[in-house]
Amino acid sequence: MDTDLFLVLGVGIAVLALPAIIGAFSESRPPRAAAIMVMIGGGLIVLAVSQHPGGYSLREVPDALTRVIGRYF
């Protein structure tokens, strides 16, 4: 698998964790599932940045997203 895919999956999982965090705090329960999602997403982002030559800048993230969408969809 390539680093662009890891980056896009990591960002997607981390973004999907936000509603779970908000829901858990609003219902006064611990955000266990959201914490696991944040760790998985963060791990994928760290893996992508460390494996990509030169790393990623914030300007490259939308380009990576369009490359992944164009390749797989």
Rank of each mutant, 00 (worst) to 15 (best):
M1P: 07
M1I: 07
D2K: 13
T3S: 14
T3R: 05
D4C: 00
F6Q: 10
V8W: 06
V8Y: 09
V8K: 06
L9H: 07
G10H: 10
G10W: 04
V11Q: 10
G12Y: 05
G12W: 06
A14R: 01
A14N: 07
L16E: 09
A17S: 13
A17L: 02
A17G: 04
L18S: 09
P19D: 08
P19N: 07
P19C: 07
A20G: 11
I21T: 14
I21Q: 12
I22F: 11
I22R: 11
G23N: 14
A24Y: 02
A24C: 05
S26T: 10
S26R: 12
S26I: 02
S26E: 09
S26A: 10
E27L: 11
E27M: 11
S28H: 08
S28K: 11
S28Y: 07
P30V: 10
P30T: 10
P30H: 08
P31G: 04
R32T: 14
A33V: 14
M37Y: 03
V38Y: 03
M39N: 13
M39E: 14
M39F: 14
M39Q: 14
I40A: 15
I40W: 04
I40H: 06
G41F: 03
G41H: 03
G43E: 03
G43Q: 02
G43I: 00
G43Y: 04
L44E: 04
L44M: 14
I45F: 03
V46A: 15
V46T: 13
L47N: 10
A48N: 04
A48R: 06
A48F: 02
V49C: 10
S50I: 00
H52Q: 12
P53H: 01
G54A: 01
G55E: 04
G55C: 06
Y56V: 03
R59L: 13
E60F: 00
V61D: 01
V61T: 03
P62T: 00
P62M: 00
D63G: 06
A64Y: 01
A64I: 04
L65R: 08
L65P: 00
T66V: 14
R67T: 05
I69N: 04
I69G: 03
I69K: 12
I69S: 10
I69P: 02
G70L: 07
